[in-house]
Design a protein around this nucleic acid. Structure first.
Lengths: 192, 192
DNA sequence: GCCTCGACCCTAGCATCGCTAGACAATCGA
DNA sequence: TCGATTGTCTAGCGATGCTAGGGTCGAGGC
């Protein structure tokens, strides 16, 4: 069985390599540059190998998204840990979210802009995605305010963050006002 | 000169036909289905004709976006006119925005998701885009609150709307809570 | 130690994409 | 009426996602 195991390990390694390479390429040159040919060349295999791991490009994007979600959840949890009062915690959370989006645009796109074939807001939603939302909920749930459903409030706050992230990166909002918009968001939306 | 004029008129007609057809096709089957071949076939001309009007597919998307922006601005202005108090006006504005996004997903994508080669938040931003933002500003500016820059507040509110629109349509948010999220947004963000 | 068989991977190719060159036809001005 | 210009089409280029089919190489039985 050792032979079998070794093979499986190599396969798993290669799959991780594919995902990591796709992410790297996407961050460097954008998702448009992530073609199956280029990706295959970078991992030093032929194209069909990709299709032995994933159904198609969509699934590769989905895999990058899942890996990114795990990372994002961790970052969001780390953000609030240092702060003492709720206001600072919420502000840190929001700032961390926007920073993550800015520093990992390709991953952010894979998560929320592109079609990675992932299910959202459902029973069969992959665990990392649920967990990332849970990370938001942990901090935001306690500033939802009297009689407001924590989940619903988190969805709204998240939407605002998502809007800021995407519009800023697409050049629809100038980066200059970013800090002020963030302050205003926390000030108004959170029930402190 | 009449001959010249007739030609120019025909050209302009055809250009409008291209934009309208692209929009129609995109709304029916999504932007992926809007290929230069299919579009050419629908307008009953060959592909190169498209390139005599537009530099490429990007510009066609941009043209659809501009037409949509004009329409959106009109819808947003009409939204607030009926309401008497500021709260109702803001709520109507937000509802109209989200409805427009839901009913014209392809146009909304052309405006804010896809690359139509348009300049935003700059001097040379096309008039329709500026005007759509101005329509938001007219209603939202007066609920920005004491000492808050109206433009900045509008940007934030817009971001929230944009986040709600895109996340809902992408299946990231369930439509069930839409009404409550909208109410909460208006309640919290606007200084009434 | 050899030989068979199956897992693995690559070459080659398909349909489709955005875009363009060059030939052809129609129309205008002289 | 003829030449030139304008307009349009056919055909094709490179690139895309994806797949079929053949070949290679190593594991396991004798």
């Amino acid at each position: 069985m050792s032979v079998q195991e070794r093979k499986e390990r190599k396969r798993a390694d290669r799959e991780r390599l594919i995902v990591a390479t796709a992410r790297e390429l996407a961050e460097q040159q954008g998702w448009d540059a992530v073609t199956t040919r280029r990706l295959a060349e970078r991992i030093e295999y032929s194209q069909p190998v990709l299709y032995s791991h994933f159904r198609g490009k969509r699934e590769i994007i989905g895999a990058v998204a899942l890996a990114g979600a795990t990372e994002m959840a961790a970052a969001l949890r780390a953000a609030g840990s240092g702060a003492d009062d709720r206001r600072a915690r919420v502000a840190a959370l929001a700032r961390t979210y926007l920073e993550f989006a800015e520093r990992n645009p390709a991953v952010y796109d894979a998560l929320f802009q592109l079609d990675g074939g992932l299910a959202f807001a459902r029973e069969d939603t992959p665990e990392p995605l649920k967990d990332a939302f849970a990370a938001l909920l942990e901090t935001l749930g306690e500033v939802a305010g009297e009689g407001v459903h924590p989940g619903l409030f988190t969805e709204l706050f998240w939407s605002a963050l998502h809007g800021l992230a995407t519009l800023t990166r697409a050049g629809r909002l100038l980066p200059e006002g970013a800090e002020q918009r963030l302050d205003l968001l926390v000030e108004r939306l959170a029930a402190l």
